[in-house]
């Protein structure tokens, strides 16, 4: 059974209206934006809808956009029965990076959200154990944010200016 993209978009829009925006399909993958209040209802709708059955959370990660001082939390969900993927983005301000946790729906969100917190400082509200996971516990920075340098800026033994790093 295949999902008709137009029908899915229409169904989502009739359920959530203006909370969803920027529908596009880069490289054939349906992508849209929503806000932090609607993300869990949207995921829940996709998960529990008997026709679509997006029961599988493939991936959670974040992207930093320093120009607009925003963080994008990106969810990839997948319907294995229909072999269909959807990407959902939520933009949250860098100054108040809070978003509700998806662990209420998917156990797999647990570590993926911890990883996202670890690297971007996204605070998943309601997460059972929001601690750093890959970096050391006493680290203060969020290393995948763009302002964080790749290497210790105090080093003088390496000069990579010519290689554009």
């Amino acid at each position: 059974m295949a999902i008709a993209t137009e029908k899915l978009i229409a169904d989502l829009q009739s359920s959530f209206g203006s909370a969803l925006s920027n529908f596009e399909q880069p490289y054939g993958l349906l992508t849209f934006q929503t806000n932090k209040d609607s993300i869990i209802p949207v995921l829940k709708y996709l998960n529990e809808n008997e026709e679509y059955r997006f029961r599988f959370l493939t991936d959670v990660c974040a992207v930093h956009y320093p120009a607009t001082k925003e963080l994008a939390v990106v969810y990839h969900v997948q319907s294995m029965e229909n072999n269909f993927r959807v990407r959902i983005k939520v933009f949250i301000p860098e100054s108040n990076p809070k978003i509700p946790t998806a662990t209420v729906l998917y156990e797999s969100a647990n570590w993926q959200e911890r990883e996202t917190y670890d690297f971007y400082g996204v605070l998943f509200e309601g997460h059972p154990n929001l601690k750093r996971i890959l970096n050391v516990d006493d680290m203060v920075a969020f290393p995948l944010r763009k302002e964080h340098p790749l290497e210790d800026p105090n080093r003088i033994d390496k000069n990579d200016t010519y290689f554009g790093r």
């Binding site: 029961r55 599988f56 959370l57 493939t58 294995m80 998917y106 156990e107 797999s108 993926q112």
Partner: peptide, 9 residues
């Protein structure tokens, strides 16, 4: 179980 496995990704 399959259900649990899917939920755990």
């Amino acid at each position: 179980s399959a259900e649990k496995a899917l939920n755990y990704g």
